[in-house]
Design a protein around this nucleic acid. Structure first.
Lengths: 202, 202, 202, 202
DNA sequence: TATGAATGAGACTTCATTCAT
DNA sequence: TATGAATGAAGTCTCATTCAT
């Protein structure tokens, strides 16, 4: 990316810059999760990040780029941590368990981010949409390959099973209630068990 | 609600009124499904319904009420048709199949409506939110009771299973592609099989 | 006035027509007094008069005409009843007392109307404004002539005194409180006394 | 009030800001005096103030707040200047004269403002109404206390006399004509004389 | 590096009015 | 005599964005 807007080259970014930037991201995550991307206002993000409204535009060239950054970062992290986990496992069932655990853990620690990823998929367009699509597909592909190890590579079944799996996982933000102290690991295990038994028996 | 805004009492609504009203609803469904509730503009709904912008407000007192009408009607229809199907079936597995089929059929015939129901759940607030919540919970309860017949009423498992089920079903609009002529009945069967085997084995 | 809008000629107006018309006028008076002319909506006037919104336009060709009718009728009545009272009195002081009493009595019985007359003087324009201006000036002239009998026709003083008098009288709607059971006759007497002593001593 | 809308904290307001702000206030005063509060459009205020429509909302959070600012400022000024005058006078009659003069002078220099104060008293509601009510009552109380010095504190008479006085004063905008070069000091004196003689003789 | 000030576009909504019936 | 249905104009307000400083 060329530096057209005065943003410092990565090398010059100091820790102050990083701190502010992630403060903005966190604020954006919270506000967009609550109000939706269209409903969220840059004003409120700025207020929550404790910088002036126009300060946002030092860090991001547009509201769209803000959403892009949020989504891209979340998917990248998800992929990275999943790959790390998978690298140490060989049994298909353990590997599938890693998929569930990884997703649920990320969700537990970054609810707002994951909600924004799931709910605002179609809020971007153009270049930002394409870039996010790419990582999303990478994540999808990675998960599908693990599912395939269990289903035995019957393509049609694997595809549908993976889509069903994503549906279950992505819906979590709709019913998970922080306050209720639900044990997310148990949820993960239970979801895994149903899914695993389901695909194996089919 | 008192009739201060000239909306005729139900008894006097003629067929012309009904035709226009459902034309508005169809337009709204399409636009909101495409742009999201916040992103959708009443102007465009009106244009698609071929009435003047202010004409919308003869039929609905606000954009919110429009969304409410859409969601409430969809859930009510879903419940009604499911109840009709269930009334004629007694085997738990047939009944569970009815749940899947009913949902997928409704989706196939009313994609936009279902997307609006799933994606814009949190776009309402206040009285409209509450009213929709009520029918949503009714639908959820109905489905859960059928799932319970299969899981054997172990409450915790039934709950999670039902939530997982809804996740799978509600996610469909994200990947289903009309153009690709996917056979929705097959999808329903496949989803059913995985889910059923999953919960039975667990 | 020519009959362009299908309004029946006076001769054909039956009592049903009269009843509805005054129901509309009463409703308009109340709503306009409360919300101001601009703030008042024809819709609400119709609702309060228990006819359909477009029904108003059978009786009045526009919102402006409605205000005109209200104001013109009020001033005419005020003039008429004052003239009747004056016709029977000869002492200047009694006649001035009649002015006060007449105004206060009309106010007591038609608060909304008088408020609309006082507060919405400038809300009309064009022909309606001119017509109301005429009766207003007639009323003003009448009162001024009575004041002159007391001040002894020194023009400048009479003018200012009359204006001061109208100010006092017209302001009443701002502080008079129906609920407090204020004795309007006492108020009239007291206002008269101060004014009379004031102009006589000057 | 928290500063969520970018309005600078008082300390940081520069003179440019002040200049624009009073330009907006002046424009608003003129437009609202002419068209009434409901009839006035923010658009026209902006045009007269030579800023963009939305620029208004940088200075005021709503049309209501604009009216509030106008009214509150006018009454505060009126009170302040009256208190200054009264501080230097001891004779009851001189003090009453100060009341008249103060009011008339303020009117002469700020006709639009005073008209807006008098005519749009009921155009506000909620918090803005309450705040203005408070200063209005303060002004009323101040004037009443001066009147009481002359009437000798007979409460009922003092009250009515003060109300009558305000009526006379507030009505001025209805008949005072700038073009006619009326001598406002003479008007003040004449009004004072009538009122003073009136209450003293009663 | 950050923001105060401003803006143009566009949003939802209300309103007086009309006209066929 | 009255109204159901519809509309165009206008209104207030919010928003993402810009730019001089």
């Amino acid at each position: 990316m060329t530096q057209t807007n005065g943003k410092p080259a990565p090398g010059r970014r100091n820790s102050q810059y990083q701190k502010r930037l992630s403060s903005v991201l966190r604020a954006a995550s919270k506000v967009i999760a609550r109000d939706g991307f269209e409903g969220a206002s840059v004003r409120e993000v700025a207020a929550k990040a404790k910088i002036g409204l126009s300060g946002i535009y030092y860090y991001f060239e547009s509201k769209d780029e803000l959403l892009y950054a949020l989504q891209h970062h979340a998917f990248s992290t998800l992929i990275e941590s999943l790959q790390e986990k998978l690298a140490q496992l060989s049994s298909p069932e353990d590997r599938l368990k890693a998929v569930f655990d990884n997703h649920f853990q990320y969700f537990a620690n970054n609810m707002d981010d994951l909600k924004v990823c799931v709910h605002e998929i179609e809020s971007l367009s153009g270049k930002y949409y394409k870039k996010v699509l790419k990582v999303r597909q990478e994540y999808y592909g990675l998960v599908k390959s693990v599912v395939a190890e269990v289903t035995g590579r019957k393509n049609y079944a694997t595809n549908l099973a993976t889509l069903s799996l994503f549906g279950s996982l992505n819906w979590v933000y709709m019913w998970y209630d922080k306050e209720k102290n639900i044990d997310i690991d148990k949820v993960s295990s239970q979801f895994l068990r149903v899914f695993l038994n389901g695909v194996k028996a089919s």
